[in-house]
């Protein structure tokens, strides 16, 4: 694997995660718990759509086979998607969505902080822009973690069980393979072991303030690096890609 190929693969991982979690958030549109939060979730979803476009566009350029961001987003199958499993988990209730978002935002916050220093200038520029957005997302989801965790007995229980259910997908965030090894060596991507420490510290802090117990789940589900997803992704893609695929070559 050369550097170009590694970057392409890495950009799919970043771009697909943004695409899929943004898609999940957009499913809330018009159904939020209160009007203000409806608008807030759409703002976050919009940031993810923008971030996806930039990452996949650059991925397509590096690949140099004439695929643009839409071709990559709308014409690949499940097994070719590289998004983290946590991002494709269905919304569930508001507690589940917030927990999923918080765990992922925290990861993205530290990851993109590292990527701002990437030796690849395009990646560094995308990361710098996105990091400002993520800083706000994390503030928003953290505040909700406190309010749900330390709100009523019902909200606490809902959030605790959401966190418990999601925990098995968190180990995968820090999985590394030859792609990471090469990119770390070349100064393109940060070492996920370092991100992991920062992630754990922050998650612990927020959980403590939210009066949440750290889950004791030991099972770790992984697979997104090789495109082995949960069953949910296929349905999401079927919905997302249907129109684009139904009219091959059409412009919209």
């Amino acid at each position: 694997m050369n550097l170009q190929q590694a970057k392409f693969e890495y950009l799919l991982r970043l771009g697909d995660s943004s695409l899929i979690i943004g898609h999940r958030l957009s499913e809330w549109c018009g159904h939020g718990p209160i009007l203000e939060e409806d608008l807030a979730m759409i703002n976050i979803a919009l940031d993810f759509v923008g971030n996806t476009s930039e990452l996949l566009k650059y991925a397509g350029q590096l690949e140099d086979k004439g695929r643009d961001e839409d071709e990559l987003a709308y014409m690949r199958d499940e097994r070719e998607f590289r998004n983290l499993l946590i991002t494709e988990q269905p919304n569930g209730d508001f507690a589940f969505t917030i927990a999923r978002q918080f765990l992922f935002d925290t990861y993205m916050f530290f990851l993109y902080e590292g990527l701002k220093a990437s030796k690849d200038e395009t990646i560094a520029a995308i990361a710098a822009k996105s990091h400002k957005e993520i800083t706000y997302h994390l503030r928003h989801t953290s505040e909700w973690m406190y309010r749900l965790g330390d709100g009523t007995a019902e909200s606490h229980d809902r959030l605790q069980s959401a966190v418990n259910d999601l925990w098995m997908f968190t180990a995968e965030l820090f999985d590394m393979d030859e792609v990471d090894a090469l990119l770390i060596k070349e100064g393109v991507a940060p070492d996920l072991n370092n991100i992991k420490t920062e992630w754990e510290t922050r998650v612990n802090e927020v959980f403590a303030k939210a009066t949440l117990q750290l889950p004791t789940t030991t099972f770790k589900q992984k697979g997104s690096r090789e495109g082995k997803h949960t069953e949910h992704l296929g349905f999401l893609l079927a919905e997302m890609q249907y129109l684009h695929r139904a009219y091959p070559g059409a412009k919209w």
């Binding site: 203000e36 703002n43 706000y136 503030r139 928003h140 309010r147």
Partner: peptide, 20 residues
Amino acid sequence: SVHAPDAEMALQNARDVYSR
């Protein structure tokens, strides 16, 4: 105006509604 349970959420809601 916005609706919010407390000052921090009011600030965030105001940001999300009035600085789009």
